Each structure stands twice: as C-alpha cells, then as structure tokens.
Amino acid sequence: MSSVPHGYVDPNFPNPMGPNDATIIIYGYRPSLALAALAIALFFLALLAHLYLLLRHRTWYFSTMLVGTTMEVVGYVFRLLSSQQDPYSVPWFVVQYFFIVVAPVFFSAAIYTVVSVLINAYGREYAPLPPRAILGIFITCDVVATITQIAGAALIGVAYSNGEDPTTPNHILLAGLAFQVFTFAVFLVVLVWTLWRARRSSVNVSRTFLGALVVATLAVYLRTCFRLAETAQGLEHYLSTHEVFFGCLEFAPIVVSVYAFTYWHPGGWLGASLKGRTIGDADVLEDSGPGKLAP
C-alpha cells in the first residue's frame, strides 16, 4: 500500500508533522499570500470606514457591519498564517473557516435590518411580512445554518487529523449551506415583493441606494451559492482545490457587498425619508442627516 496521503501535499512546504497538523493541506492548495494580504487590507479599511459612518450617522442598527468586517480581518489573518507558516495546521484551517464563514451572517443581518427599516418607511401594507418577523425569522435561520456549517467544518478538521473519512461531516456542512441558500432565497422574494409594491408608496427613497441594496444582497447570495456548490461537489474536487474560485466567488462578492454599503451607507442615503422611523418600537435613526431622495 502506498504511504502517500490522499489529498494535496505541497512539495515546496514539508509537513511539520506537529500534533495539530493534518497529513495533507485541507484547503486543497497552499493559500495565496497575496489574496490574504489584500483581503486583510480591504476589510480593515472597510472596518474603519464603517466605524466612522456609524459614529457620524448614529445608525446603531447597522453596527453588525463592524462585527462582520472584524471577523473577515481575523479570518484572513489566520489564512495568511496558514500560507506562510503551516498550511497543514488543522486549528488554523478551522479558525479561518469559522471567521470567514460566519462574517457574512452579520452582513446579512445588516441587510435584513435595512429592509425592515424600509418597510416601516414605506408602510407595512407593502411587505408580505412585518419588520420584526423579518428580523426574527431570517436571523434565526442564519444562526441555525451557520452553527450547522461550523460543526461540519470542525468535524472535517477532526476527521483529517485522525485520518478518517470526512464524508459524513461534509454532509453536515452541506445541510447547513443548503438551508441557508433556501432561506436567503425566501428573503430575496420578500425584498423583491416589497420593492415592487412600494412603488405606490408616498415615501420616495433614492433609487441608487435601492440598487446598491439589491447588488449587495445578490453578492452575499452568490457567495452562499458558491459555498453550496463547492461542498456539494465534495472535498478534494475541482471547486475546492482551486483558489481562483474562492477568490472570485467568496472573497470578491463580500468585498462588493461591504463597499457598496460603505458608499451607499443607509445613514447618508436614507436620511430625511426615514428620520424618526422605527423597527417595531425601537428608534433606528437618531441623526440621519439631510438624506438623498430619488428624483
């Protein structure tokens, strides 16, 4: 029987064979230093920008963007460590996976909150669900899906560490992703329904802001669909063993979403049209500025 491990081993980076190292590189490749460094720089700049915008506009409901960008920075730091110090490390793989996978949940929460604010502004008769229901249902679904994914990823790491078959943990990960893709698709229906019917509302919100909201939402959904396709194809297959797909369909869509909300921040673009509106019973805009309305 061959002693060569099944999976990717970097011929230019000997396995340290430490107690926390797998026999192969679980990523399926040695992570790119350039991609990790670029991600750290972009998400750190976005973190600073969103912190400034949060304090300037006092849109506290949008603070989940800070959590998400912070998690992206941490995730890519560990990905960079994997690239340069030990790509075989199971803990570093699990940590970077946890932070990079969980971060978009906070961006989704920010999107859910913006849509809830819009529903209150337009009028609740224009949406299929009340604002509080949107927040409760979709955030809960994201939490359940994410916990399932993290459990699957952790079990995959354990399986590789012990030289066991990772198929069952991969199925757990797949179930979490499939559930997340389904629930986010339902949210897209709610968003389209609301924006279509709200054309008759007397509240006139900037069309460019609404366009940015849609683009950011679709970017997050594209990233989730990629993760589902990658996991469904299976470990050590084409999608999961070529970092170009990770860069184009995980990293890039999230950057688009984060920076869309950096320029089209709700504090500056919803402004006067939503001042004093609420989500349920809680004020969401204390100091929204002049706002920008559609012509």
Rank of each mutant, 00 (worst) to 15 (best):
S161R: 15
S161L: 15
S161I: 09
N162Y: 08
G163Y: 05
E164W: 14
E164S: 11
D165L: 00
D165F: 00
P166F: 01
P166L: 01
T168M: 12
P169G: 08
P169C: 11
N170K: 12
H171K: 14
H171L: 11
I172K: 15
I172E: 15
L173R: 03
L173P: 08
L174M: 15
A175W: 09
A175P: 11
L177P: 07
A178C: 09
A178G: 13
A178R: 11
F179I: 13
Q180Y: 05
V181M: 03
F182H: 13
T183I: 07
F184W: 13
F184C: 03
A185K: 05
V186M: 12
V186E: 02
F187N: 03
L188S: 05
V189Q: 10
V190D: 05
L191V: 01
W193V: 06
W193N: 08
W193K: 14
T194I: 01
W196Q: 07
W196G: 06
A198K: 01
R199K: 15
R199S: 06
S201N: 05
S202H: 13
N204A: 10
S206D: 05
S206R: 01
T208V: 14
L210E: 00
A212L: 02
A212M: 07
A212G: 12
L213Q: 00
V215R: 04
A216E: 06
L218H: 08
A219R: 10
V220G: 12
V220M: 12
L222K: 09
L222N: 11
R223Q: 13
T224F: 14
F226S: 01
F226I: 12
R227F: 07
A229W: 02
E230R: 03
A232Q: 13
Q233E: 15
Q233W: 08
Q233N: 08
Q233F: 07
G234Y: 04
G234I: 02
L235R: 02
L235D: 01
Y238P: 08
S240E: 14
S240I: 08
T241G: 05
H242V: 11
H242I: 12
E243T: 08
V244N: 12
F245D: 05
F246T: 10
F246P: 05
G247W: 05
G247V: 09
C248E: 12
L249Y: 08
F251P: 00
F251N: 04
F251C: 10
P253F: 01
I254L: 15
V255T: 08
V255K: 04
V255W: 00
V255C: 11
V256Q: 07
V256D: 10
V258K: 05
V258C: 06
Y259V: 06
Y259D: 02
F261D: 04
F261M: 05
F261Q: 02
T262Q: 09
Y263C: 14
Y263F: 15
W264H: 09
W264Y: 15
W264S: 03
H265G: 11
H265R: 04
H265M: 10
H265Y: 15
P266L: 00
P266C: 00
